[in-house]
Amino acid sequence: MSLSLSLTINGAARDIPLDDPRVTLLDLLRERLALPGTKKGCDRGQCGACTVLIDGHRVNACLTLAATLDGAKITTIEGLADGESLHPVQSAFIEHDGFQCGYCTPGQIMSAVGLIAEGQAGDDPERIREGMSGNICRCSAYHGITLAVQDATRRMATAEKDDAA
């Protein structure tokens, strides 16, 4: 099989030849596109470490066959910061110590960005906990993660209001 995919990855359009239909988005990013920030924790949709945004929605890259994605816009952890300036979720994770080893962190952060965009949790900690439960952190930094997502949600809401005003 030989297939060519057009993907927009972190804002850059790319044409990617694909010679194997088995390649998942996760392995495409990590092993073929030199974007190893997205992590493999279980490879089966059970841990969330591989979370990326596809067309703005958070998904598990490990269960997504790359071949299905022609035309998609992908955002990975490498594409979240605006140059030197961190995304509010990234800064909040540092401030609230929402990680220890850092391995699940790219997935946690992309999941949080997706969750905030979904707009269902708001700054309610219980809804944040539930909404972030697809991302396992074995170091168990959950307390800081919840605080970070809550804080980032508020900051982003304020920023939006300021923009509107």
Binding site: R30, L35, P36, G37, T38, K39, K40, T76, I77, E78, L80, A81, L86, Q90, S91, F93, I94, F99, G102, Y103, T105, P106, I109
Partner: peptide, 11 residues
């Protein structure tokens, strides 16, 4: 760690 630039072994 929050930007994905921390390089773990398999990266």
């Amino acid at each position: 760690k929050v930007t994905g630039s921390a390089t773990f072994s398999a990266d």
